[in-house]
Design a protein around this nucleic acid. Structure first.
Length: 482
RNA sequence: CGGGGAGUGGCGCAGCCUGGUUAGCGCGCCUGCCUUGGGAGCAGGAGGUCGUCGGUUCAAAUCCGAUCUCCCCGACCA
């Protein structure tokens, strides 16, 4: 097997990570640039991943008692203005609708950057009694944020996401919901996307505008930078006061509702690319791969008569077994070309079948994540393939987990902290005194931010603040991030 | 939003500095032959208002201005 790179249109990952990322997304046809700044088209191969993410996450959302609904794309300006902290957080990146046809609107409409305001308004109409609680609604939607710096999937002007919005009768319930979702995200991302995450609370500085507390899952990309992959906010009674969401409790006291909101977005697709991809291209975990198994018939001699019927039968059997399978029977490409192409596109398992294999009642299986080839009996192939896919899913996760472990450091010394950031990046655990000033200084001097304060904190060790060296009890995880 | 780089057939680029016939090259695409166990070979062919708008000039891909988009590096964010 040759080690040389076959898909040469893609910049090697080691040479220029950013360029590798963009090249790969375009070559693999996950997405393409639209002619408007910061906007992209999610192409069918990329959208198929989103559909898999939606399917797998939607099940978890519903299994935890939530239900889907859809709220309007436009939000009146006055609604956003009701919550100044929230507005300030989003103001620079709100897109405004000022005209309907040729007529200027009486009141500008915001294209939703997130839906707390409009949902808060609706909840105030729906919630009157403790019997109406909890309200557990999710929506799958697009949102718009006029970002200055954009990158496909990671930060685009418009993106797709799900946003959950719940209302509860007590702080404790809202807090439990916030953490339930955090755990749901963790389990989802690790199980289905095969990306190990760290999780915990965001600092005041990094939290969602208008929230009491923000929790997040964060993952390490293979260039050593961190990516926020999902957030879960305890909104307290903040929005309830602003939008007058009140209920009468069973003591006949009027109370403001306690709310949460939480979301993950199409950014997860970018995370898949950056967490697992290599110089040969994408590596998709079987659980979300658009195509789980590609069958490449070896086109020699009268292969249409000898090989193709067997390949077709295998395809049908795998399909009937519930797998996403594609038979690449195109005559105009050579087998070798197809091998490289499907590797580049991240298909977890390739089955090669030629005349020799047909004769021996076997296929050659090649795993994408480690390029190892093995021979499999055609008899009982469905079971074996399913086992292999499960193994591949595990192997991809394990590889990412070892990478994360190898690139997670614990430091006490600021100099060491800086040199790690310069040389290797990664997650760096260190104590922090809790002052915003130290946090800001560290960011200013090293570009690293506190990604999360792990939650729970584990055994209450104490140390000294990374920056000011005063006694500190908060163990934080720092990283440079996207 | 600052600093830097780029936009030329589908993709990657050359040409621009020093304006002047028909704008080249590689890959891809089309037709045919021959091939096919890791991106095959030969022959023929199609495809371009040089990002857009304006200016200078007898003449603009080339010079000047504006504008749009992308990439990289910094300040703000799923």
């Amino acid at each position: 097997m040759s080690e040389e790179r076959l898909v040469t249109q893609i910049t090697p990952k080691s040479e220029d990570f950013s360029r590798w990322y963009v090249d790969l997304i375009r070559r693999a046809e996950l997405a393409d640039y639209a002619p408007m700044k910061g906007m992209m088209v999610i192409r069918p191969y990329g959208y198929a991943i989103w559909e898999n993410i939606q399917r797998l996450l939607d099940k978890r959302i519903k299994d935890t008692g939530h239900i889907n609904a859809y709220f309007p794309l436009f939000i009146p300006e006055s609604f956003l203005r009701k919550e100044m902290e929230h507005l300030k957080g989003f103001a620079p990146e709100v897109a405004w609708v000022t005209h309907g046809g040729d007529d200027e609107l009486e009141e500008r409409l915001a294209v939703r950057p997130t839906s707390e305001a409009i949902i808060g308004y609706m909840y105030s109409k729906w919630i009157k009694s403790w019997r109406d609680l909890p309200v557990l609604i999710n929506q799958w939607a697009n949102v718009v944020r006029w970002e200055k710096v954009t990158r496909p999937f990671l930060r685009t002007t418009e993106f797709l996401w799900q946003e959950g919005h719940t209302a509860h009768a007590s702080f404790e319930e809202a807090q439990a919901e916030t953490l339930l979702i955090l755990e749901m995200y963790r389990e989802f991302v690790e199980t289905e996307l095969a990306i190990p995450v760290i999780y915990g609370q965001k600092t005041e500085r990094e939290k969602f505008a208008g929230a009491l507390a923000t929790y997040a899952i964060e993952a390490l990309m293979s260039d050593g930078k961190a990516l926020q992959m999902g957030t879960s906010h305890n909104l307290g009674q903040h929005f309830a006061r602003v939008f007058n969401i009140r209920f009468e409790d069973n003591n006949q006291d009027l109370q403001y509702a306690w709310q949460t909101s939480w979301g993950v977005s199409t950014r997860l697709i970018g995370a898949l690319v950056m967490a697992h991809g290599d110089d040969s291209g994408l590596v998709f975990p079987p659980q979300v791969a658009p195509i789980q198994v590609v069958i490449v018939p070896i086109s020699v001699g009268n292969w249409r008569e000898t090989v193709l019927p067997v390949a077709t039968e295998i395809k049908n059997n795998l399909k009937n077994a519930g797998l996403r399978v594609f038979l690449d029977d195109r005559a105009e490409y050579t087998p070798g070309w197809k091998f490289s192409e499907w590797e580049m596109r991240g298909v977890p398992l390739r089955l090669e079948i030629g005349p020799r294999d047909v004769k021996n009642n076997q296929v050659v299986a090649c795993r994408r994540e480690n390029q190892v080839k093995i021979t499999l009996e055609i008899t009982g192939l469905e079971t074996k393939v399913k086992e292999l896919l499960a193994e591949i899913q595990r192997a991809i996760f394990d590889k990412a987990l070892s990478f994360q472990k190898e690139n997670t450091y614990e430091v006490e010394d600021y100099k060491e902290f800086k040199s790690i950031l310069e040389e290797k990046r990664g997650f760096i655990k260190a104590f922090w005194c809790g002052s915003e000033e130290c946090e800001a200084k560290i960011k200013e001097e090293t570009m690293a931010t506190i990604r999360v304060i792990p939650h729970p904190q584990g055994e209450q060790k104490k140390g000294r603040c990374l920056y000011c060296q005063k006694p500190a009890s908060i163990a934080a995880v720092f990283a440079r991030s996207y």
